[in-house]
Design a protein around this nucleic acid. Structure first.
Lengths: 198, 198
DNA sequence: TCGATTATTTTCGAAATCGAAAATTATAAG
DNA sequence: CTTATAATTTTCGATTTCGAAAATAATCGA
Protein backbone atom coordinates (compact mmCIF):
# COMPACT_ATOMS: atom_id res chain seq x y z
CA UNK A 1 0.00 0.00 0.00
CA UNK A 2 1.23 3.43 -0.76
CA UNK A 3 2.45 5.34 2.20
CA UNK A 4 -0.12 7.96 3.01
CA UNK A 5 0.77 11.43 4.01
CA UNK A 6 -1.87 11.25 6.68
CA UNK A 7 0.51 9.14 8.73
CA UNK A 8 2.96 11.98 8.73
CA UNK A 9 0.59 14.44 10.35
CA UNK A 10 0.78 13.35 13.97
CA UNK A 11 4.45 12.58 13.71
CA UNK A 12 5.29 16.06 12.47
CA UNK A 13 3.17 17.74 15.07
CA UNK A 14 4.76 15.69 17.84
CA UNK A 15 8.22 16.52 16.60
CA UNK A 16 7.36 20.17 16.30
CA UNK A 17 5.93 20.38 19.79
CA UNK A 18 8.78 18.43 21.28
CA UNK A 19 11.23 20.97 19.90
CA UNK A 20 9.07 23.94 20.74
CA UNK A 21 8.81 25.10 17.16
CA UNK A 22 5.98 27.25 15.88
CA UNK A 23 4.56 26.57 12.47
CA UNK A 24 6.44 29.67 11.47
CA UNK A 25 9.73 28.17 12.64
CA UNK A 26 9.11 24.93 10.85
CA UNK A 27 8.18 26.90 7.79
CA UNK A 28 11.55 28.62 7.81
CA UNK A 29 13.41 25.38 8.33
CA UNK A 30 11.64 23.59 5.55
CA UNK A 31 10.67 26.28 3.10
CA UNK A 32 7.08 25.10 3.25
CA UNK A 33 4.46 27.74 3.93
CA UNK A 34 2.79 27.98 7.29
CA UNK A 35 -0.57 27.45 5.68
CA UNK A 36 0.48 24.19 4.12
CA UNK A 37 2.03 22.94 7.33
CA UNK A 38 -1.14 23.71 9.22
CA UNK A 39 -3.21 21.86 6.70
CA UNK A 40 -0.82 18.95 6.81
CA UNK A 41 -1.03 18.60 10.56
CA UNK A 42 -4.80 18.70 10.40
CA UNK A 43 -5.10 16.21 7.63
CA UNK A 44 -6.54 18.74 5.21
CA UNK A 45 -3.94 18.23 2.56
CA UNK A 46 -1.45 15.66 1.41
CA UNK A 47 2.06 16.57 0.51
CA UNK A 48 3.95 16.61 -2.69
CA UNK A 49 6.88 14.26 -2.98
CA UNK A 50 9.30 17.13 -3.16
CA UNK A 51 7.54 18.79 -0.28
CA UNK A 52 7.83 15.71 1.90
CA UNK A 53 11.51 15.68 1.19
CA UNK A 54 11.82 19.36 2.04
CA UNK A 55 10.07 18.56 5.28
CA UNK A 56 12.33 15.69 6.23
CA UNK A 57 15.42 17.57 5.19
CA UNK A 58 14.36 20.69 7.05
CA UNK A 59 13.64 18.86 10.25
CA UNK A 60 16.78 16.84 9.83
CA UNK A 61 15.33 13.38 9.97
CA UNK A 62 14.87 10.61 7.48
CA UNK A 63 11.62 10.29 5.64
CA UNK A 64 10.87 7.00 7.34
CA UNK A 65 10.88 8.86 10.59
CA UNK A 66 7.92 10.80 9.31
CA UNK A 67 6.01 8.02 7.67
CA UNK A 68 7.06 5.63 10.43
CA UNK A 69 5.04 2.94 8.85
CA UNK A 70 5.49 -0.20 10.85
CA UNK A 71 3.45 -1.43 7.96
CA UNK A 72 4.14 -4.65 6.18
CA UNK A 73 6.06 -5.69 9.21
CA UNK A 74 4.92 -8.97 10.55
CA UNK A 75 4.39 -8.98 14.24
CA UNK A 76 6.12 -12.29 14.57
CA UNK A 77 9.10 -13.01 16.65
CA UNK A 78 11.39 -15.88 15.97
CA UNK A 79 14.39 -17.22 17.76
CA UNK A 80 17.19 -19.61 16.96
CA UNK A 81 19.04 -21.11 19.83
CA UNK A 82 22.75 -21.78 19.43
CA UNK A 83 23.28 -24.49 16.84
CA UNK A 84 19.58 -24.75 16.03
CA UNK A 85 19.62 -23.05 12.65
CA UNK A 86 18.94 -24.48 9.25
CA UNK A 87 22.23 -25.95 8.13
CA UNK A 88 23.55 -26.50 4.65
CA UNK A 89 27.02 -27.02 3.38
CA UNK A 90 29.00 -26.01 0.35
CA UNK A 91 32.50 -26.91 -0.64
CA UNK A 92 34.00 -23.85 0.99
CA UNK A 93 31.60 -22.77 3.66
CA UNK A 94 29.11 -24.29 6.09
CA UNK A 95 26.02 -22.18 6.61
CA UNK A 96 23.69 -22.14 9.56
CA UNK A 97 20.76 -19.92 8.68
CA UNK A 98 19.43 -18.11 11.72
CA UNK A 99 15.80 -17.21 12.25
CA UNK A 100 15.07 -18.74 8.89
CA UNK A 101 11.36 -18.99 9.56
CA UNK A 102 10.77 -15.29 9.85
CA UNK A 103 8.25 -14.27 7.26
CA UNK A 104 8.40 -11.40 4.87
CA UNK A 105 11.92 -10.19 5.35
CA UNK A 106 14.17 -9.13 2.57
CA UNK A 107 17.19 -10.04 4.51
CA UNK A 108 18.71 -13.04 6.10
CA UNK A 109 21.16 -13.94 8.77
CA UNK A 110 23.54 -16.81 8.98
CA UNK A 111 26.46 -18.10 10.93
CA UNK A 112 29.24 -19.23 8.65
CA UNK A 113 32.07 -21.60 9.19
CA UNK A 114 34.70 -20.97 6.56
CA UNK A 115 36.49 -24.11 5.40
CA UNK A 116 38.39 -22.89 2.36
CA UNK A 117 42.03 -22.20 3.09
CA UNK A 118 43.23 -21.20 -0.33
CA UNK A 119 41.73 -19.32 -3.21
CA UNK A 120 41.02 -21.60 -6.12
CA UNK A 121 41.62 -19.41 -9.19
CA UNK A 122 39.35 -21.58 -11.28
CA UNK A 123 36.30 -21.08 -9.15
CA UNK A 124 33.91 -18.36 -10.27
CA UNK A 125 33.38 -15.50 -7.88
CA UNK A 126 30.45 -15.48 -5.53
CA UNK A 127 28.19 -12.79 -6.79
CA UNK A 128 24.62 -11.94 -5.96
CA UNK A 129 22.42 -8.89 -5.47
CA UNK A 130 22.37 -7.16 -2.13
CA UNK A 131 24.69 -6.01 0.55
CA UNK A 132 26.65 -8.24 2.80
CA UNK A 133 27.63 -7.47 6.33
CA UNK A 134 29.99 -9.73 8.22
CA UNK A 135 31.24 -9.80 11.76
CA UNK A 136 34.09 -12.11 12.61
CA UNK A 137 33.18 -14.25 15.58
CA UNK A 138 36.28 -16.39 15.64
CA UNK A 139 39.47 -16.90 13.70
CA UNK A 140 40.96 -14.90 10.87
CA UNK A 141 39.15 -14.19 7.65
CA UNK A 142 40.52 -13.06 4.33
CA UNK A 143 38.02 -11.60 1.93
CA UNK A 144 39.14 -11.83 -1.67
CA UNK A 145 37.33 -9.63 -4.15
CA UNK A 146 37.63 -9.18 -7.87
CA UNK A 147 38.41 -5.52 -7.78
CA UNK A 148 40.84 -4.94 -4.96
CA UNK A 149 43.45 -6.38 -2.68
CA UNK A 150 42.37 -9.06 -0.21
CA UNK A 151 41.14 -7.77 3.13
CA UNK A 152 42.07 -9.48 6.35
CA UNK A 153 39.74 -9.41 9.33
CA UNK A 154 40.16 -10.77 12.80
CA UNK A 155 37.76 -11.43 15.65
CA UNK A 156 35.55 -8.44 16.36
CA UNK A 157 36.11 -6.79 13.00
CA UNK A 158 33.21 -6.09 10.69
CA UNK A 159 32.79 -5.28 7.06
CA UNK A 160 30.04 -4.20 4.73
CA UNK A 161 30.22 -4.52 0.98
CA UNK A 162 28.19 -4.87 -2.14
CA UNK A 163 27.67 -8.54 -2.83
CA UNK A 164 27.50 -7.97 -6.55
CA UNK A 165 31.24 -7.55 -6.44
CA UNK A 166 32.78 -10.97 -6.94
CA UNK A 167 34.02 -12.32 -3.64
CA UNK A 168 35.35 -15.35 -1.78
CA UNK A 169 35.93 -16.10 1.89
CA UNK A 170 39.14 -17.75 2.98
CA UNK A 171 40.09 -18.86 6.45
CA UNK A 172 43.58 -17.82 7.41
CA UNK A 173 44.18 -18.45 11.10
CA UNK A 174 45.25 -21.62 12.76
CA UNK A 175 41.84 -22.58 14.09
CA UNK A 176 38.28 -22.42 12.82
CA UNK A 177 36.96 -19.21 11.29
CA UNK A 178 33.38 -18.25 12.10
CA UNK A 179 31.41 -15.30 10.83
CA UNK A 180 28.07 -13.82 11.44
CA UNK A 181 26.63 -12.75 8.12
CA UNK A 182 23.75 -10.48 7.29
CA UNK A 183 22.62 -10.35 3.73
CA UNK A 184 20.16 -7.71 2.69
CA UNK A 185 18.36 -7.80 -0.60
CA UNK A 186 16.22 -5.29 -2.34
CA UNK A 187 12.87 -6.35 -3.54
CA UNK A 188 11.40 -9.64 -2.58
CA UNK A 189 14.01 -12.23 -3.25
CA UNK A 190 14.49 -15.16 -1.01
CA UNK A 191 17.67 -14.76 0.94
CA UNK A 192 18.31 -18.43 1.60
CA UNK A 193 17.88 -19.19 -2.08
CA UNK A 194 20.45 -16.57 -2.87
CA UNK A 195 22.93 -18.08 -0.49
CA UNK A 196 22.37 -21.56 -1.80
CA UNK A 197 22.87 -20.52 -5.38
CA UNK A 198 26.36 -19.26 -4.83
CA UNK B 1 17.66 20.82 -2.37
CA UNK B 2 14.55 18.74 -2.19
CA UNK B 3 14.79 15.50 -4.08
CA UNK B 4 13.43 16.19 -7.46
CA UNK B 5 11.26 13.77 -9.30
CA UNK B 6 13.26 14.53 -12.41
CA UNK B 7 16.07 12.43 -10.98
CA UNK B 8 13.77 9.47 -10.96
CA UNK B 9 12.96 9.69 -14.64
CA UNK B 10 16.06 8.17 -16.17
CA UNK B 11 16.36 5.65 -13.40
CA UNK B 12 12.84 4.35 -13.96
CA UNK B 13 13.26 4.20 -17.68
CA UNK B 14 16.53 2.30 -17.35
CA UNK B 15 14.96 -0.16 -14.96
CA UNK B 16 11.98 -0.60 -17.21
CA UNK B 17 14.06 -1.22 -20.31
CA UNK B 18 16.39 -3.55 -18.49
CA UNK B 19 13.46 -5.74 -17.49
CA UNK B 20 11.76 -5.46 -20.83
CA UNK B 21 8.63 -3.91 -19.38
CA UNK B 22 6.30 -1.76 -21.44
CA UNK B 23 4.73 1.28 -19.88
CA UNK B 24 1.62 -0.82 -19.75
CA UNK B 25 3.37 -3.51 -17.70
CA UNK B 26 4.80 -0.99 -15.30
CA UNK B 27 1.39 0.55 -15.01
CA UNK B 28 -0.07 -2.76 -13.90
CA UNK B 29 2.69 -3.34 -11.40
CA UNK B 30 2.40 0.06 -9.84
CA UNK B 31 -1.19 1.08 -10.35
CA UNK B 32 -0.03 4.30 -12.00
CA UNK B 33 -1.54 5.12 -15.36
CA UNK B 34 0.45 4.72 -18.53
CA UNK B 35 -0.01 8.38 -19.30
CA UNK B 36 1.52 9.45 -16.01
CA UNK B 37 4.43 7.08 -16.38
CA UNK B 38 5.15 8.42 -19.83
CA UNK B 39 5.09 11.97 -18.59
CA UNK B 40 7.33 11.02 -15.70
CA UNK B 41 9.94 9.45 -17.93
CA UNK B 42 9.91 12.49 -20.18
CA UNK B 43 10.13 14.98 -17.39
CA UNK B 44 6.72 16.42 -18.12
CA UNK B 45 5.35 15.83 -14.70
CA UNK B 46 6.53 15.38 -11.17
CA UNK B 47 5.15 12.71 -8.95
CA UNK B 48 2.98 12.78 -5.95
CA UNK B 49 4.43 11.46 -2.74
CA UNK B 50 1.99 8.61 -2.67
CA UNK B 51 2.64 7.94 -6.32
CA UNK B 52 6.38 7.73 -5.83
CA UNK B 53 5.77 5.19 -3.14
CA UNK B 54 3.47 3.20 -5.37
CA UNK B 55 6.19 3.25 -7.96
CA UNK B 56 8.91 2.00 -5.66
CA UNK B 57 6.68 -0.63 -4.15
CA UNK B 58 5.46 -1.79 -7.53
CA UNK B 59 8.92 -2.16 -8.94
CA UNK B 60 10.07 -3.77 -5.75
CA UNK B 61 12.87 -1.46 -4.79
CA UNK B 62 13.45 1.06 -2.07
CA UNK B 63 12.70 4.67 -2.79
CA UNK B 64 16.36 5.51 -2.37
CA UNK B 65 17.00 3.26 -5.28
CA UNK B 66 14.95 5.61 -7.41
CA UNK B 67 16.00 8.95 -6.04
CA UNK B 68 19.70 8.29 -5.65
CA UNK B 69 20.69 4.99 -7.16
CA UNK B 70 24.31 6.03 -6.98
CA UNK B 71 24.09 5.87 -3.25
CA UNK B 72 21.92 2.80 -3.08
CA UNK B 73 24.35 0.90 -5.18
CA UNK B 74 27.68 2.14 -3.99
CA UNK B 75 30.45 -0.15 -4.89
CA UNK B 76 32.21 0.92 -1.76
CA UNK B 77 33.39 -1.34 0.91
CA UNK B 78 33.71 -0.21 4.44
CA UNK B 79 35.23 -1.84 7.42
CA UNK B 80 35.22 -1.28 11.13
CA UNK B 81 38.01 -2.82 13.12
CA UNK B 82 37.25 -4.06 16.59
CA UNK B 83 36.37 -1.13 18.83
CA UNK B 84 36.59 1.37 15.98
CA UNK B 85 32.90 2.07 15.52
CA UNK B 86 30.96 5.23 16.17
CA UNK B 87 30.08 5.15 19.83
CA UNK B 88 27.19 6.72 21.64
CA UNK B 89 25.70 5.96 24.99
CA UNK B 90 22.26 5.90 26.48
CA UNK B 91 21.20 5.22 30.01
CA UNK B 92 20.68 1.54 29.43
CA UNK B 93 22.83 0.61 26.48
CA UNK B 94 26.12 1.60 24.91
CA UNK B 95 26.12 1.49 21.13
CA UNK B 96 29.02 1.06 18.80
CA UNK B 97 27.76 1.57 15.28
CA UNK B 98 29.64 -0.59 12.82
CA UNK B 99 30.38 0.41 9.26
CA UNK B 100 28.55 3.63 9.92
CA UNK B 101 30.05 5.36 6.92
CA UNK B 102 28.45 3.09 4.40
CA UNK B 103 26.16 5.27 2.38
CA UNK B 104 22.70 4.57 1.19
CA UNK B 105 21.81 1.48 3.11
CA UNK B 106 18.48 0.95 4.72
CA UNK B 107 19.97 -0.99 7.50
CA UNK B 108 22.50 -0.57 10.18
CA UNK B 109 24.69 -2.66 12.39
CA UNK B 110 25.84 -2.08 15.91
CA UNK B 111 27.52 -3.80 18.76
CA UNK B 112 25.65 -3.25 21.98
CA UNK B 113 26.74 -3.41 25.55
CA UNK B 114 23.69 -3.76 27.75
CA UNK B 115 23.99 -1.95 31.06
CA UNK B 116 20.45 -2.11 32.40
CA UNK B 117 19.99 -4.85 34.96
CA UNK B 118 16.37 -4.28 35.89
CA UNK B 119 13.32 -3.19 33.99
CA UNK B 120 12.24 0.28 35.00
CA UNK B 121 8.43 0.17 34.73
CA UNK B 122 8.27 3.92 34.29
CA UNK B 123 10.41 4.01 31.19
CA UNK B 124 8.57 4.04 27.89
CA UNK B 125 9.19 1.09 25.60
CA UNK B 126 11.73 1.34 22.83
CA UNK B 127 9.78 1.41 19.67
CA UNK B 128 10.75 2.24 16.11
CA UNK B 129 10.03 1.08 12.59
CA UNK B 130 11.92 -1.86 11.22
CA UNK B 131 13.07 -5.29 12.13
CA UNK B 132 15.68 -6.05 14.66
CA UNK B 133 18.00 -9.00 14.60
CA UNK B 134 20.25 -9.74 17.54
CA UNK B 135 22.97 -12.27 18.17
CA UNK B 136 24.27 -12.65 21.69
CA UNK B 137 28.03 -12.35 21.70
CA UNK B 138 28.55 -12.55 25.41
CA UNK B 139 26.54 -12.78 28.61
CA UNK B 140 22.85 -13.37 29.14
CA UNK B 141 20.19 -11.18 27.66
CA UNK B 142 16.56 -10.85 28.63
CA UNK B 143 14.34 -9.22 26.08
CA UNK B 144 11.24 -7.68 27.61
CA UNK B 145 8.42 -6.87 25.23
CA UNK B 146 5.07 -5.29 25.71
CA UNK B 147 3.07 -8.18 24.37
CA UNK B 148 4.59 -11.35 25.71
CA UNK B 149 6.70 -12.98 28.36
CA UNK B 150 10.36 -11.98 28.61
CA UNK B 151 12.70 -14.02 26.45
CA UNK B 152 16.08 -15.12 27.74
CA UNK B 153 18.99 -15.57 25.36
CA UNK B 154 22.49 -16.77 26.00
CA UNK B 155 25.68 -16.63 23.99
CA UNK B 156 25.19 -17.85 20.43
CA UNK B 157 21.42 -17.43 20.45
CA UNK B 158 19.76 -15.17 17.96
CA UNK B 159 16.40 -13.52 17.64
CA UNK B 160 14.48 -11.53 15.07
CA UNK B 161 11.51 -9.37 15.91
CA UNK B 162 9.53 -6.37 14.83
CA UNK B 163 10.97 -3.27 16.45
CA UNK B 164 7.62 -1.55 16.48
CA UNK B 165 6.71 -3.84 19.36
CA UNK B 166 7.75 -2.09 22.53
CA UNK B 167 10.93 -3.64 23.87
CA UNK B 168 13.76 -3.32 26.36
CA UNK B 169 17.06 -5.12 26.77
CA UNK B 170 18.15 -6.27 30.18
CA UNK B 171 21.43 -7.88 31.14
CA UNK B 172 20.97 -10.90 33.38
CA UNK B 173 24.21 -12.78 33.73
CA UNK B 174 27.03 -12.14 36.09
CA UNK B 175 29.31 -10.45 33.56
CA UNK B 176 28.90 -8.04 30.69
CA UNK B 177 26.26 -8.67 28.06
CA UNK B 178 27.16 -7.90 24.47
CA UNK B 179 24.99 -8.18 21.39
CA UNK B 180 25.42 -7.77 17.74
CA UNK B 181 22.40 -5.94 16.38
CA UNK B 182 21.13 -5.50 12.88
CA UNK B 183 18.33 -3.08 12.28
CA UNK B 184 16.62 -3.07 8.94
CA UNK B 185 14.22 -0.41 7.79
CA UNK B 186 11.95 -0.26 4.83
CA UNK B 187 12.23 2.39 2.23
CA UNK B 188 14.81 4.98 2.90
CA UNK B 189 15.99 6.13 6.21
CA UNK B 190 18.83 6.84 8.47
CA UNK B 191 19.33 3.92 10.78
CA UNK B 192 21.61 5.66 13.22
CA UNK B 193 19.05 8.43 13.57
CA UNK B 194 16.47 5.83 14.50
CA UNK B 195 18.66 4.29 17.13
CA UNK B 196 19.51 7.62 18.69
CA UNK B 197 15.94 8.71 19.02
CA UNK B 198 14.88 5.78 21.10
C1' DT C 1 -11.56 41.78 31.73
C1' DC C 2 -9.49 44.19 28.10
C1' DG C 3 -6.43 44.96 24.49
C1' DA C 4 -2.23 43.75 22.12
C1' DT C 5 0.59 40.39 20.34
C1' DT C 6 1.44 35.90 18.69
C1' DA C 7 0.01 31.46 16.71
C1' DT C 8 -2.93 28.81 13.92
C1' DT C 9 -6.55 27.94 10.65
C1' DT C 10 -9.37 29.09 6.64
C1' DT C 11 -10.27 31.22 2.21
C1' DC C 12 -9.30 31.69 -2.42
C1' DG C 13 -6.89 31.90 -6.85
C1' DA C 14 -2.87 30.23 -9.54
C1' DA C 15 -0.42 26.27 -10.78
C1' DA C 16 0.26 21.35 -11.00
C1' DT C 17 -0.95 16.35 -11.02
C1' DC C 18 -3.70 12.46 -12.56
C1' DG C 19 -5.92 9.45 -15.79
C1' DA C 20 -9.11 8.58 -19.92
C1' DA C 21 -9.16 9.05 -24.47
C1' DA C 22 -7.25 10.81 -28.79
C1' DA C 23 -3.20 11.41 -31.55
C1' DT C 24 1.18 10.10 -32.82
C1' DT C 25 5.04 7.10 -33.50
C1' DA C 26 7.26 2.57 -33.81
C1' DT C 27 7.21 -2.22 -35.09
C1' DA C 28 5.85 -6.26 -37.98
C1' DA C 29 3.91 -8.94 -41.48
C1' DG C 30 2.61 -9.56 -46.10
C1' DC D 1 5.46 -0.01 -49.75
C1' DT D 2 1.10 -0.70 -47.31
C1' DT D 3 -1.60 -2.00 -43.70
C1' DA D 4 -2.44 -3.69 -39.05
C1' DT D 5 -1.09 -3.70 -34.49
C1' DA D 6 1.48 -2.34 -30.56
C1' DA D 7 3.70 1.23 -27.81
C1' DT D 8 4.18 5.76 -26.47
C1' DT D 9 3.03 10.58 -26.17
C1' DT D 10 -0.18 14.45 -26.05
C1' DT D 11 -4.54 16.65 -25.09
C1' DC D 12 -7.93 17.94 -22.00
C1' DG D 13 -10.78 18.35 -17.98
C1' DA D 14 -11.51 17.07 -13.08
C1' DT D 15 -9.26 17.23 -8.88
C1' DT D 16 -5.71 18.60 -5.77
C1' DT D 17 -1.85 21.19 -3.88
C1' DC D 18 0.49 25.44 -2.67
C1' DG D 19 1.02 29.85 -0.57
C1' DA D 20 -0.52 34.88 0.32
C1' DA D 21 -3.65 37.12 2.78
C1' DA D 22 -7.70 37.30 5.74
C1' DA D 23 -10.01 35.38 9.68
C1' DT D 24 -9.94 33.11 13.89
C1' DA D 25 -7.97 31.40 18.14
C1' DA D 26 -4.65 31.38 21.82
C1' DT D 27 -1.45 33.71 25.02
C1' DC D 28 -0.09 37.22 28.06
C1' DG D 29 0.49 41.50 30.74
C1' DA D 30 -1.74 45.19 33.06
Amino acid sequence: MGVDTVDIASRVKALRKKNGWRLHDLSEKTGISVATLSKLENGKTKLNFTTVNKLAQGIGVAVTNLTSPGLAHTKDTTMTLGGGGVVFETRDVDYEVLCADYKGGNQGYAKLSVKARTLDPNLPWHRHPGKEFIYVLKGILVLHTEDREPITLKRGDSLLFDSSIGHHYISAGRGETQLLLSLSLQGYSNVIETLREN
